[in-house]
Design a protein around this nucleic acid. Structure first.
Lengths: 138, 138
DNA sequence: CTTTGTGCAAATTCTTTGCACCAAA
DNA sequence: TTTGGTGCAAAGAATTTGCACAAAG
C-alpha cells in the first residue's frame, strides 16, 4: 500500500501541485493498477470525498497525462483508461468482461519505434485482445 | 479504382448480402484507404445517396467487422475508424491532425501473439503516435 | 489581492435503440 | 408473406465547456 506521501513526491516530480483531489486520484492509481476508467475512479473516491466532481477527475487526469505522470490507454472503445505504469509493457483486453491486464516481459524490440521519414514517432501502444480465462470458464 | 463488382464479390465471400448501401460503403472503403470514421463515410456518400442514414452506416460496419471483412481500429479516442486491410500491419496516428497512416513491412514477429496461460489472444493492434511531417511543417 | 483549482449545470459528440416502413426472396 | 434491411427520431453514455465560487500563496 503506497502512501499519500509517496503520491505527493511523485506529483512534485512531475511539477503537479498536490491538491487534496489530485493526491486522492494519484493514491488510487498507485494502489489500483487495474487501468481504471474515469467513472471507476470517481465512484471509488466518492464515499470519502462526497463533494468530488467528475469534472475534477477529468481535469486531474488530463494534467497527469500532459505531464507524463500517467499513460492514457486507447484500447477500450467505450472509455478512456489510465495506467500509472509508464514503462514499456503491453496490454490485453478481454472482449467479454472488458477488463484490461498488463503483459510484461515481452522482448524489448517490440517497443522500439520504426525509423520512418514521414513521421516523428514518440509512443507505441501494443494491445492484444481475446477472451480471459475467467470468461472462458476455467 | 475498384469497382462495385469487386465489392459484391468481396461481400459475398464474407456472406454479406450486397445491398445498395452496403456496396456503397464497401466501395468507399476499398477506394479510400484512409481509415475513415463513420461520419466521414456518411458525409462522403450522402451527395450520391441523399436518403442514406447514419444508422445504416453504423449497422453496415458492425456487420462488416463481425464477418471479418473489415477491421475496427481503436487508436483514435474520438471516433471508431475502419480499415479494409485486415492483413498484419501497424498504424501511426498524428496527435496534431488526427490522421491515421498504415505502417507496412514491419518484422512479422511483432504481430505474433505471446503464449500466456491466462488469456486466449486472437488479435493484436500496434499503434504508434507522434507528429506527421505535414504538421511539423516539412 | 491574484492566481489556480474545484464543482455544478448545460452543452456537445458519438453511438445505440425502438419502431415503422420498404424491399427482396 | 415472411424475413431481413433501412432510416427516422429519441435515448443513452462519455466527455467538454462556461462560469461562479473556494483555496492557496
Amino acid at each position: 500500500m503506497l502512501t499519500t506521501l509517496e503520491s505527493h513526491k511523485y506529483l512534485r516530480q512531475h511539477s503537479i501541485k498536490p491538491s487534496v483531489q489530485r493526491t486522492a486520484v494519484m493514491d488510487y492509481l498507485m494502489n489500483n493498477r487495474t487501468h481504471p476508467t474515469i467513472d471507476e475512479i470517481y465512484l471509488a473516491l466518492c464515499p470519502n470525498m462526497p463533494t468530488l466532481s467528475k469534472t475534477t477527475v477529468y481535469n486531474t487526469l488530463d494534467i497527469f497525462v500532459e505531464r507524463g505522470a500517467v499513460r492514457a490507454l486507447v484500447i477500450d472503445e467505450k472509455n478512456a483508461r489510465y495506467d500509472i505504469d509508464v514503462s514499456a509493457h503491453a496490454h490485453f483486453i478481454c472482449r467479454s468482461c472488458g477488463k484490461v491486464h498488463d503483459i510484461f516481459n515481452l522482448k524489448s524490440e517490440l517497443f522500439e519505434f520504426p525509423k520512418l521519414s514521414r513521421f516523428s514517432i514518440n509512443a507505441v501502444e501494443i494491445s492484444y485482445s481475446g477472451i480471459c480465462d475467467k470468461c472462458k470458464g476455467n
